[in-house]
Nucleic acid binder design. Sequence first.
DNA 1: GAAAAGATTAAA
DNA 2: TTAATCTTTTCC
Length: 291
Amino acid sequence: MLQSLTKINFLLSISARSFSLQMNSSKRFKRIAPKRNKSVRLSQSCNDSERCANKSSKSVIVRTRTTPRHNQTLPQPKLKIQSSLVSDPCFRDTTILPHDFFQIDALDLAPRLLGKFLRRDDVVLQITEVEAYRPNDSACHGRFGITPRTAPVFGPGGNAYVYLCYGLHTMLNVVADKEGVGAAVLIRACAPVCGLETIQQRRGQQTEKPILLTGPGKVGQALGISTEWSYHPLYTPGGLELLDGPEPDKILIGPRVGIEYALPEHVNALWRFAIADTPWISAPKNTLRPP
DNA sequence: GAAAAGATTAAA
DNA sequence: TTAATCTTTTCC
């Protein structure tokens, strides 16, 4: 496992002076990861006790749990995550990005998210590809205004917006800009940094190849999140966090994927951003070019 | 109340 | 190339 992660980090080819991505203690992460009982494992889309409790449509998960819910509190896993942060040299210097970081135009935020880290439990992913969705954008979910589904998009920047696509895939967005604006950045692809075994388990694929994490639905699955994670603040410790990371040397830009229904000006807008020289990019790759 | 479509994925 | 799969939104 150590060998494979080292290989993956090599492939990233990012200047990471202050970020040693070497994983010299993978087994420690495994030990620190909160244990899940069988019922939770069945649905990896909901491992968070508070969210499961609020779940209505997927109450099957709640019913099948063996541990009484009221015995589980949020601070416990939070502390464990903190201890792993301190004890592992890999992430000693990393910091959670502050609330202010996200209060900008999605078009500015999107490229700035490249190279940053998403962390949940023992899983750490590095963001390699994103898309910006903005106000007055005929491809943005916010185009319908504030609805039950899209309300999170109009929340303050730094929250998560998770939606279900094709009834199957959970898509993670980082809400951008001020409250009420209605902008977000879709995470389209990541590279694995820590917790490879958990990622593979959640994905159901025993591979280290880019097929593991190159696609927005794959990222959501690897992080084990559901739509219940909408509104979750990424700038506070616990749950899902966005950590600072190295700025990529070179990036690529291109038109966004799968928005043929939008107006031509938005279909053609170059609002897709990716790290150059990494294999962790989703399809299609041939529409990406240097700026 | 019904119908259509979707910021996709994996397998054939 | 195509099936899987279901929520959200729009239209009548």
